[in-house]
Design a protein around this nucleic acid. Sequence first.
DNA 1: TTGAAAGCGCTAACAT
DNA 2: ATGTTAGCGCTTTCAA
Lengths: 358, 358
Amino acid sequence: METNVARTPTVRSARVKRAKVTVHDVAREAGVSIATVSRALNAPDSVRKELRDRVVQAATALNYTIDSVGKALRRQRTQIVATLLPRLDDPMFAILASAIQETLVENNYVGFVQPSGFDNRTLHDCARNLVEKGAEGLIVFGKIDDPDLVNFAAAHDIPLVSVYSYYEDMAIPTFGFDNGAATEQLIAMLVQLGHERIAMISGPVEGNDRQAARVAVYREAMRRIGSEPVIEFIDMSFEPPDGALALRRIVSRHPEISALICNRDVIAFSVLAEAKKLGIRVPEQLSLTGFDDIDYAALFDPPLTTIAVPTEEMGRAAATSLIRHLESGAPLTGMRFETRVILRGSVSRPKPSLVRLP
Amino acid sequence: METNVARTPTVRSARVKRAKVTVHDVAREAGVSIATVSRALNAPDSVRKELRDRVVQAATALNYTIDSVGKALRRQRTQIVATLLPRLDDPMFAILASAIQETLVENNYVGFVQPSGFDNRTLHDCARNLVEKGAEGLIVFGKIDDPDLVNFAAAHDIPLVSVYSYYEDMAIPTFGFDNGAATEQLIAMLVQLGHERIAMISGPVEGNDRQAARVAVYREAMRRIGSEPVIEFIDMSFEPPDGALALRRIVSRHPEISALICNRDVIAFSVLAEAKKLGIRVPEQLSLTGFDDIDYAALFDPPLTTIAVPTEEMGRAAATSLIRHLESGAPLTGMRFETRVILRGSVSRPKPSLVRLP
DNA sequence: TTGAAAGCGCTAACAT
DNA sequence: ATGTTAGCGCTTTCAA
């Protein structure tokens, strides 16, 4: 879109390596041994006040910065955790990443964040790269479907946790909620309002346990109430035209549909916009739901009914547990979170009038 | 909101340190020296094919993973870059972070991403922490207003670049656009449509060059056309009630306002929602603009007029330049990007009827 | 082409 | 309480 039109003057023509200040320099300056420098900086109480002050002063004077690479090599600990997410440029993932990164830094850790796509069957290479760069713990979004990753983590003693989806009795601890149960909540609400012809827009289910669980529960519910399942699968890289196209397909092929479940809020946003273009009134002619309750859901017109997911809490819990495990070998125990339906204006009782394309 | 109701069974009761596979193990297995192992893995061409194959085979058999900590200590290179952003849980920042992280990994780097707040006058501590954890290059969002950070980076030879805001002739290379010019574009468009009474909702300007530049240009423009500047400052941590309150203040104190510039799209979203509640018709009674053109801007009703910012391109350019500099000492040269007004339905010519609170 | 050996910066075991 | 020293895993001279 935009092109660069100008270039600032060059800043440094070459990378000049300045001599690095090390513990030896500080030790010399303070007139102590390198061990005392290390102690004064890491365990101040174990050093006499006078020496400690001299060390701190010397370190400040020389502008000393600890080299965590040397430290990490010696301690065999990096205090780095890596997070693998399908993508980062999407509110829900970004909120999760934000919660994780903040938790890490509060605990003197730092984190790599890597967008790795929606297919959890091929995470190994990405994870391996991050571990090789120093990650000593791994947080993965959703159910881990890659045996290579699981084996790799086990072989290298890298603790591995999963966030967002909850599973009982999994080898890998999960910090999340039950996607199927959440969809159940949504469908139960719609059914109670009187909806029977319900459609779904989902992402691909391959390697994506969240979408798979929601689709499965939806199919089962339709079977129960004797309705034909109507599902449109679209790419998960949020492209408004995809949502729009899916809506057009559904209303043209299944004009009897009275409610539409979108498996992500952002899909519902584009569907809502398209519905307006098509002259379909939401919720009068079509009830619409999203998933995740991202901030903007309440700001649309009508406000979007959706499932509230405790994204931030899950991220913090996963990161906190992982850190505790890394620090003190505390047992790594998954946690189940609850979701709830946020009923807003995009849903109403079904009206007798059917949806029709203009 | 949600509480955890269940706990999965414990996975590992203690962290058992498995003996680590090192170059020595691979060397022994392959019957070569550790030097040959290193060469076979890093510079295959310098090792006879037969030995090379033996090494690779041994490494695979032993499940060897290179330890980048040892490598980094020896090479004095980590291939880690850190990015400091005001926050991560917001679409525009998330898109930028995503572009940077992807660029890094494509170049065999990895990245720390740290939310560090909106005040660029106090970045030093955060940056120092990331450098101590191994970052050898730093990308900072917006103009760097912290002399401590600049001095620190210079003292430790840490290349430092700024992304999003462009400045000519800055000591630190900037990859961004001119925030003032962008606001000029917006105001020129509104003025051309006939607007004279224009208000602005901004974030705090302290330590935030983006907001400061936009406010300054706005004030100057109002002076030029002889209108009183009407500015509401709100917290930048997107809280819909803040935007709503700012709108109510503006229309109650200045009912003559015909256009409202919001310095972020997300603020405009909440203002738009509140306008509907108040019965203010957009754009008939009030023209509304945002900033950044995040994906959802086009999906609102009416679609939001805004400034398109090449977020992804800026992020990729900053990361690419930094990597090239790190790899080969290539000069670090800033780049200026262009913005443009995206005219959508939230803006129209001003109508004679004034905005009134219901 | 390959091997031996040094050493990156740090912490911790041991000695004093 | 402080100093001496070994060594974490790796790459890269230097020598063969």
